[in-house]
């Protein structure tokens, strides 16, 4: 089997861009086989043989089982993100089919970013008072970045909520 590994960076709010890129790879005959940190391992497939989906979801074996029961294959997990693929012959493949569950998903991402961001902020402040090694700025930088991510996620959520006022 021909294989291929690509290293690529996506920001948290770019998860739909990441998904589109993975589906583009599948269209070109490379389907995701496993994931690592900023690393994607592909295996040769028929062009358009698979659809690939990803989402943030905590450790939840029964969810993975549920997905497999609907004909999807579990590709792998990278921290909180899980990746699935499904053969196009098995029917259409989406993870979310209404606005509410898309908003829920963004809330989930927001909560995780908020927790890590706050932790970094607190550790950063505490480390700033450390007279020996002054590394607090690293945490403060991380906290700033995470808050920016949170803002981007929030923007996406607002757009959906506006839609939700009129539609389901």
């Amino acid at each position: 089997m021909e294989r291929n590994t690509i290293r690529k960076w996506f920001w948290v709010w770019e998860f739909d861009k990441e998904e589109a890129w993975l589906n583009g790879m599948a269209q070109n005959g490379w389907v995701l086989e496993s994931v690592g940190f900023c690393t994607y391992h592909f295996v040769k497939c028929e062009p358009g043989e698979y659809n690939v989906r990803l989402e943030m979801h905590g450790y939840d074996e029964s969810y993975i089982q549920f997905m497999q029961d609907t004909g999807a294959e579990f590709v792998g997990r990278m921290v909180a993100w899980i990746y699935f693929r499904k053969k196009t012959t098995e029917g259409p493949f989406d993870l979310f089919s209404d606005i509410d569950s898309r908003i829920d998903h963004l809330n989930k991402i927001g909560r995780v970013l908020g927790i890590i961001g706050t932790a970094n902020l607190l550790i950063g402040i505490m480390n700033s008072f450390n007279p020996v090694v002054n590394i607090g700025w690293i945490n403060l930088l991380c906290a700033t970045l995470l808050m920016y991510c949170l803002g981007r996620i929030h923007g996406k959520k607002e757009a959906l909520e506006k839609e939700r006022l009129l539609h389901e």
Binding site: F66, L95, S101
Partner: peptide, 22 residues
């Protein structure tokens, strides 16, 4: 998922993540 699709004449396709949450 199959029953919903059939009843709605293919208009509503419940996605697995949405269904699981619901």
């Amino acid at each position: 998922m199959l029953m919903t699709e059939k009843m709605s004449h293919g208009r509503i396709r419940l996605a697995a993540g949405t269904l699981y949450g619901a």
